[in-house]
């Protein structure tokens, strides 16, 4: 991106906000499918403008159902939701979306597919479609494959094309459902970089994932879903802040070390064979180390363990997570 392009307002950059409120607001949002299964249960969510919002949860926790309700694809059985503080028909042209994987016409080329979806947007102009499609393809690195039929695209290329489709116009909000699914590690890194770049332009990004590491790396905020319910939300810092930073001491003298740590006033001292951990609280780790050594404890290692989102999640739900991110 050159400076000139930035000044000209590249179409994939942020659009001026239409409403100063939150990008996404849901209130008591509920979806009960016929057959009685409750996919989303009284969800209250507020996604601040300009945030990169991670929407976390294991598969089947209601993330995609929520996204479908946000986009007006399915009707909530209870509660409300709004995008950009606008009626849905006015909000959607300002929203780019990737829902449950790519879906295109296999017999059309990548470029023709993007033109097709652009034609469906009543606010998009046919006069600029050529340039916008070209720029979206370039943004995801598909320029060389623009003339290839979608049928012959690899899984990674399909995913990129879906992201390109979400970037066809100036967007205030991007809703990306599992954007790195099917991508190789290189592609995953590229998508993360792209999301950061888009967010830097002021676009709010709402990204669902079942990969904790991914959300930790990309997002400023997160919400954690479990079986259709919201179990936690807030900034990444505040979420992790809910759990204390711990100090972990590797030592053969576990009992002595535990005593010293308790004497220092550290809370929640737990000792195991060869290691002791405690909540660090306001203590400086180097002081803790000096005290241990001063008391004759053989310190083999000392580490400060900051809580990760995974710890938060496990703490909240007692459930593990797919963490192969």
């Amino acid at each position: 991106m050159t400076t000139v392009a930035q000044e000209a307002g590249a179409p994939t950059g942020a659009a001026p906000p239409s409403d100063p409120g939150a990008a996404i607001v849901t209130s008591g949002l509920t979806k009960r499918f016929r057959g009685g299964q409750t996919a989303v249960d009284a969800l209250d969510l507020t996604v601040p403008r300009g945030s990169v919002y991670g929407f976390l949860g294991p598969n089947g926790s209601g993330k995609t159902t929520t996204i479908r309700m946000l986009l007006g694809l399915i009707t909530p059985t209870g509660g409300t939701c709004s995008l950009l503080g606008l009626p849905l028909a006015l909000a959607l042209p300002r929203v780019g979306a990737l829902v449950e994987g790519p879906a295109f016409y296999p017999y059309l080329t990548g470029e023709a597919n993007l033109r097709r979806f652009d034609a469906a947007d009543p606010t998009a102009s046919g006069a600029t479609v050529r340039r916008r499609v070209g720029e979206a393809l370039e943004r995801v690195g598909l320029t060389a494959a623009a003339g290839k039929r979608y049928r012959n695209y690899s899984l990674g290329m399909r995913q990129r094309l879906a992201i390109a489709a979400a970037l066809l116009g100036p967007r205030e909000l991007l809703i990306l459902d599992e954007p790195t699914n099917g991508l190789d590690p290189q592609g995953t890194r590229e998508v993360r970089a792209l999301v950061k770049e888009i967010a830097a332009g002021g676009t709010t990004v709402f990204v669902s994932s079942h990969l904790l590491a991914e959300v930790e790396q990309m997002c400023t905020h997160a919400a954690i879903m479990r079986t259709g319910r919201l179990v936690a939300d807030g900034t990444i810092a505040s979420l992790s802040g809910g759990l204390a930073t711990r100090v972990s001491v590797e030592t053969p003298d576990a009992a002595d070390a535990a005593r010293v740590l308790a004497a220092l006033g550290l809370a929640d001292v737990r000792s195991a064979a060869g290691a002791v951990t405690a909540e660090l609280g306001g203590h400086a780790p180097e002081r803790v180390n000096a005290a241990l050594v001063g008391e004759g404890v053989a310190v083999r290692g000392l580490a400060v363990v900051r809580p990760s989102l995974e710890d938060v999640f496990v703490g909240l739900t007692g459930e593990g997570f797919d963490v192969d991110g």
Binding site: R68, L92, D121
Partner: peptide, 18 residues
Amino acid sequence: GGGTLRYLLAAPAGRTRL
């Protein structure tokens, strides 16, 4: 069946219009 309907509607094509 092809899944393109969800992207057309999210574009938004508008159901009556489509």
